[in-house]
Write a protein that binds this DNA or RNA. Structure first.
Lengths: 158, 158
DNA sequence: ATAAATTTAGACTTTATTGTCTAAATCAAT
DNA sequence: ATTGATTTAGACAATAAAGTCTAAATTTAT
């Protein structure tokens, strides 16, 4: 697991990037996403529901259903996904776990950690998933390549 | 819990900082540490054993036993504690969980994350626990103050 | 209307982490 | 030697996170 996000959150970010990479197709079936990203189908289902409630994605039920981005890809940042899934507390709190650590009673690494947090916030806020997927040359090639070393052809979670 | 370290790791860092802050006293009883830091006694015991195996601390059994730093406080960095407890993988791997993300096949935030990682590495490597506890005006006052809002006097884990 | 495809819901299982409890081993002081 | 204080060991429990399974609800297409 990432040092930073829960696995649910990782999956959510991956799925939204995948949707962005396939625009303007839509909607995309959950099974397409879970197959492409090797994410357990029903697990991803719950994550997508969370993102739906938060407006990050829109779901369409029934035959020919699926998911699409909730708004323009340029208007969705990673932070929106993280907030929806891991909540607000992910960048609050002392990195060493001291309960009352703050600017007035800082823990030993408080100042250093603050700088790192700023960098991370920039990473999460400033780039939209539209930009992120476009930078990679668009489309879904980058995601496919990220799995090519492991399971070249096999589909799972069927 | 921290966004970054396991709770075990948080406790380990806190405990080592506490030892550094009380130098040159030694050894310090486990119960002193767990009381001061509100850490479950036997849980901390296992963490200290892990740190002992890694040479970060030295234990003394029996009456008048306790723990002391395994070497000069200037020679111990947070990274040493993290490596001992959370292992090597904590800063490896893709922050989005893509299994083959690397410089040649980067995920969308690979480059941005790399910069953040560098900042965090500096934080963890460059400052020794000696410096960190000294910067705070020495001694353990900073740690006491970090709990003063909660349980002013009560001792737990007895 | 019916059937097929899909999302939604919720119970359940598995696994990892965190925390608790009891007892044994070790050492210092008397 | 005995006692008391302490670390060490390991079984166990509680909680949270991750993953699986079955069935219901919804929608499109025929």
């Amino acid at each position: 697991m990432s040092v930073f996000f829960s696995r649910s959150c990782e999956y959510g970010i991956q799925a939204v990037l995948y949707l962005a990479s396939r625009e303007p197709e839509s909607p995309i079936h959950l099974r397409d996403i879970s197959n492409a990203l090797r994410i357990p189908h029903h697990f991803l289902s719950k994550i997508m529901q969370t993102l739906e409630r938060d407006g990050v994605v829109i779901s369409h039920k029934g035959a020919n259903g699926g998911f699409e981005l909730g708004r323009d890809a340029k208007e969705i940042s990673i932070i929106n996904i993280v907030r929806a899934i891991d909540g607000e507390a992910f960048l609050n709190g002392c990195v060493l776990g001291f309960p009352s650590c703050d600017d007035t009673a800082p823990c030993p690494v408080h100042t250093l950690w603050k700088k790192s947090k700023e960098n991370i916030s920039v990473m999460l806020e400033k780039s939209s998933v539209g930009e992120l997927s476009a930078e990679l040359g668009g489309k879904l090639e980058f995601i496919k390549s990220l799995y090519s070393h492991n399971n070249p052809t096999k589909e799972i979670n069927v």
